[in-house]
């Protein structure tokens, strides 16, 4: 298959069109603006709609509207913009609507900076809006994976009628790597729930997130959580690298996992039994895979571009049976392989 050199942001945009995304609503923000720029240029040519909304809040509500009609729809932003979208995301989840949301993370909190960061892990996996709900969270680690995961995100979002997020960062969004694309999707599963007009040939479909009767609301939430259990069972994904005999397992996702992998290779060259566990989905978290990867581990080292957020899920998954150490950089600072190697050496002793 032909491989082309492409920026992560542009690859996300192209992959979305090929996955059948017909509407994009967004508002520019560094470091993800190339997604908007690419779709502004190409969406209409592909029979779709690109619209720059007046704000992030407007954009996410346009997503809700388009999704109600059964249309594949996407929005993208970076950290502060995602915070603005959070109310709308909660409404979308509560309405059982599918959509894809891209967060190309930058340093926070507040307006923060524009350099790569992973400080929105908690937001994405625990509390992206009010109420009892989850969204699917994919964590690509290369430009190719951005393409593959956008495609899968659209499919799973439709299958389970829920929002799916691609949690990337400025480094992945801005870098170019060789990438190849799947053929353009032409066939889709029907969406009998969509409010797409029927000329009185069936019962009305209603999209709604307001349930004033507590027992009715409870029932809708519980049903959603039953679906979550199935997703946890079937769709938690991870890459496990050199963990068969590892005494120290490094856990990292996204761009940081690339740095960690270089460090693990360097540690192996020095005779240290190190391995890498890289979750590809952050919700559901691949808990079972992590436990399998840590069978021979005496210590776990969690590396993140934050003050330590994913480490909570690592500890929960391992039920604190193995000591979990942390190394992180934040605010847009990227850890280096040398720094991570030094941490591995420190804890391997």
């Amino acid at each position: 298959m032909e491989r082309n050199l492409m920026k992560g942001n542009e690859a996300i945009a192209e992959a979305a069109m090929r996955a059948g995304c017909k509407c994009f609503f967004g508002y520019p923000i560094t470091p993800q603006t190339e997604i908007s720029a690419y779709l502004a240029k190409n969406m209409a040519k592909n029979g779709g709609l690109f619209l720059q909304a007046e704000s992030e809040v407007a954009a996410i509500n346009m997503v809700l509207g388009a999704s109600s009609t059964g249309t594949r729809v996407m929005t993208s932003s970076s950290s502060p913009g995602i915070s603005l979208k959070s109310e709308g995301i909660s409404y979308i989840a509560a309405s059982d609507l599918p959509c894809v949301i891209v967060n190309v993370q930058r340093g926070g909190p507040g307006l923060g900076g524009i350099q790569p960061s992973q400080a929105d892990y908690w937001q994405a996996t625990k509390a992206l809006g009010h109420g009892d709900f989850h969204i699917l969270v994919f964590a690509p680690s290369s430009v190719q994976e951005m393409v593959d995961m956008v495609t899968e995100a659209f499919d799973l979002a439709d299958e389970y009628r829920m929002p799916a997020m691609l949690l990337a960062d400025g480094l992945l969004g801005q870098m170019m790597e060789p990438v190849s694309f799947p053929e353009k999707r032409t066939e889709f599963s029907p969406k009998p729930w969509a409010t797409d007009g029927h000329k009185n040939k069936r019962e009305h479909n209603i999209v709604n997130s307001l349930f004033l009767q507590p027992d009715v609301l409870q029932n809708s939430v519980v049903k959603r959580f039953e679906r979550y259990e199935e997703i946890k069972e079937k769709h938690a994904q991870a890459e496990v690298y050199l963990c068969e005999d590892a005494e120290i397992v490094v856990t990292a996702y996204g761009a940081t996992a690339r740095v960690a992998k270089s460090a693990v290779n360097a540690a192996r060259a020095k005779g240290i039994k190190a391995g890498l566990f890289r979750p590809k989905t952050l919700w559901p978290y691949p808990e079972k895979r992590l436990n399998d990867a840590c069978k021979t581990a005496k210590r776990v080292l969690c590396v993140e571009m934050s003050m330590g957020q994913m480490i909570d899920d690592v500890k929960l998954a391992l039920e604190c049976r193995i000591p979990v150490e942390f190394f992180g950089k934040t605010g847009g600072v990227i850890p280096t392989p040398t720094e991570v190697l030094a941490q591995i050496e420190k804890y391997a002793e």
Binding site: T30, P31, Q115, G170, Q174, M175, M176, E177, P178
Partner: peptide, 10 residues
């Protein structure tokens, strides 16, 4: 070959 290109955008 495998390649990567990363610009400064700061």
């Amino acid at each position: 070959k495998e390649v990567s290109w990363l610009p400064s955008y700061g």
